[in-house]
Design a protein around this nucleic acid. Structure first.
Length: 557
RNA sequence: GCCCUCGUAGCUCAGCUGGAUAGAGCGUCGGACUUCUAAUCCGUAGGUCGCAGGUUCGAGUCCUGCCGGGGGCACCA
């Protein structure tokens, strides 16, 4: 019996009680019943606080109400016992076969176990990383890659059509500075003010010159500076773009759309959106510039959209971009931004509102910073000095799985430390190995069972799964759909990781205390076969969960 | 000054959007491999949940105010 089925059963009992006059309530007042796993195992398999929520309205006390409900519930099939506890909790114990049935359900559902429908029919655009093509993806961007892709997978698991999108700011002063920095190293000049430094600038400049030489092109020496800059600008951006795409692909993140800010300007979409806003009165002219009335939509002040020098401000592109995303079918636009951009949230929502969209169709997830620890101390990173740690560095040091897991297992609200020594260790201290090892163990058990000739389909007797460790494991496996549903609803991928760590722990404990294969000359019994179902159910849940995090589920380690 | 965010075991962090005696891993200490991988398991110790009020049957969770860390407050992107 799944928690959902139990919840429905309790609800049916309430309706039954109302019709029998036991509860002085209206059937329409009965809410969705929440069941939860009690912290203390002695409290039973599941507990509900329904009586505490409803007693007042029914003119009863929580304990009385719970007692009456328990009386009805205890008669239902699959329920072993139901008893009132504490202030009015109802502790429920499932019959062993009802609890164990879940193992077969999970195996039969396979990769679909845990899937939900809450976003079916919705199209969600999720934009993340979006690092400027002025350098490699640094540690912060790597975090959003791991988190964003995992959230995308969760939303897809709940039925959404998801567009993973990367926005390239290839328009504006950052790019100009990047070009100027490339030119500077070629000319042997100092890095310009607000420019970019580091070995990669030298590498890219060398690459540009080499490519040009191979193509028989000459770099425009002694040409007007504008021409020199343009030469390095276009080639540098293209090379950097290629590097970024390569890193992301190696990290296992596949974007559906790489969107160039330039294209919004070139296609006239920016001009068109701004013309609309002028017509609707959302833009006004003052002090030689054009302003968006963002303060009318919740921002703390109005924002300049067209600067007094006639150039578009950054937000102009974003306005057109929001329109473009909606026109491409997005019902919801999610942005992952670093904490240093939180001031931008109100502006984005205001832009959406000014365009006539629901501000809630723009959702911004603000993530905190990542820092690096090595040899027990912090590693200083400086973009100017060129000592940033890149996505590639991290993957080289610990591998994709450890990197993605470590970055996804914490709430985005939390600043995190990435400890390189810990992530390359193979022990409990490194959670990704803990979880992956549990999966590898399930696979090992399955291989051994096959060698013994234990065949799952020969028998399944749920009532045999009576061991304490089995009850614990089954209870956790049953929670997977709800963990996924909450993770998807709150956009909190870390819940999946934390849950998997619990499942891994329960599996390791079960593995330690029970056996799937017979010892010595023992004959193969239905208990062995039934346990193989449970083993495979645990494997399936861990594999499904790791899949949502973009982490591999190895068969052997 | 204003805004966002965090503050939970020695350390790194969970805490299921208000529920029972606040959890996990690491680190302490002590146990468990002749039979499915010990990259594991079991036990032990460790807490005024930053502080002070409030809301209610009940608060780590919600509200207010302080304290402390981080981030942000551009006609930069």
């Amino acid at each position: 019996m799944t928690p959902e089925e139990l919840s429905a059963t309790i609800r049916a009992c309430l309706i039954e009680g109302i019709e029998a006059g036991t509860f002085d309530l209206d059937a329409a007042d009965v809410p969705e019943i929440q069941v939860e796993r009690p912290r203390q195992r002695e409290h039973g398999d599941w507990a509900t606080n329904a009586a505490m929520l409803l007693a007042k309205r029914a003119g009863s006390t929580p304990r009385e109400f719970a007692n009456a409900l328990a009386g009805i519930l205890a008669t239902k099939p699959g329920i072993d016992s139901a008893e009132t506890a504490g202030p009015g909790f109802l502790n429920i114990r499932l019959a062993a076969d009802a609890a164990g049935e879940l193992a077969r359900t999970i195996v039969q559902l396979g990769a679909d176990y845990g899937r939900g429908e809450s976003l079916t029919g919705k199209t969600v655009n999720i934009e993340f990383v979006s690092a400027n093509p002025t350098g490699p993806i640094h540690l912060g961007g790597t975090r959003w890659a791991a988190v964003g892709d995992s959230i995308a997978r969760l939303l897809e698991f709940h039925g959404a059509r998801v567009i993973r999108e990367y926005y390239f700011n290839d328009h504006g002063t950052q790019i100009d500075r990047f070009a100027a920095s490339l030119l500077a190293v070629v000319l042997g000049e100092e890095t310009p003010e607000d420019g970019y430094a580091g070995q990669y600038i030298q590498d890219i400049a060398d690459q540009i010159l080499q490519d040009a030489a191979i193509a028989g092109e000459k770099y425009p020496l002694n040409a007007p500076r504008e021409e020199e800059l343009e030469f390095f600008r276009s080639r540098g951006v293209r090379l950097m773009f290629g590097e970024i795409k390569k890193s992301l692909a190696a990290f296992g993140v596949e974007f559906d759309v790489f969107f160039h800010e330039d294209s919004l300007h070139d296609s006239g979409k920016v001009a068109q959106a701004l013309a609309e806003l002028k017509a609707s009165g959302s833009l006004y002219e003052a002090e030689g510039a054009w302003w968006l009335r963002s303060s009318e939509f919740g921002d703390e002040k109005d924002r300049v959209v067209i600067k007094s020098d006639g150039n578009a401000a950054y937000i102009a592109g974003d306005i057109a971009y929001i329109r473009d995303k909606h026109e491409r079918g997005a019902d919801l636009c999610i942005y992952l931004l670093g904490a240093d951009h939180h001031g931008y949230v109100a502006r984005l929502k205001a832009a959406a509102a000014a365009l006539g969209y629901d501000p809630d169709s723009v959702e911004v997830i603000i993530g905190q910073m990542v820092s690096l620890v090595k040899d027990g101390g912090p590693v200083r990173m400086s973009k100017r000095a060129g000592t940033v740690v890149t996505m590639e560095d991290l993957v080289d040091a610990v591998g994709v799985d450890a990197a993605r897991y470590a970055l996804a297992r914490s709430s985005a609200d939390q600043t995190i430390d990435i400890d390189l020594d810990l992530l390359s260790s193979k022990s409990n201290a490194n959670p990704v190995f803990y979880v992956q090892y549990a999966h590898a163990r399930t696979a090992g058990v399955r291989r051994n069972a096959a060698e013994y000739g234990i065949v799952r389909d020969d028998a399944f007797d749920a009532s045999l799964l009576t061991h304490e460790a089995e009850a614990k494991l089954l209870g956790l496996l049953g929670e997977f759909p709800r963990v996924v549903a909450q993770a998807a609803a709150f956009r909190e991928q870390h819940r999946v990781a934390r849950y998997l760590e619990e499942v891994a722990n329960a599996y390791h404990g079960w593995y330690d205390r029970t056996r799937v294969t017979p010892q010595g000359d023992e004959p193969i019994t239905d208990l062995h076969r039934t346990r193989l179902w449970l083993n495979d159910a645990a494997r399936q849940v861990i594999a499904n969960g790791l899949g949502l995090l973009g982490v591999s589920a190895p068969e052997r380690m």
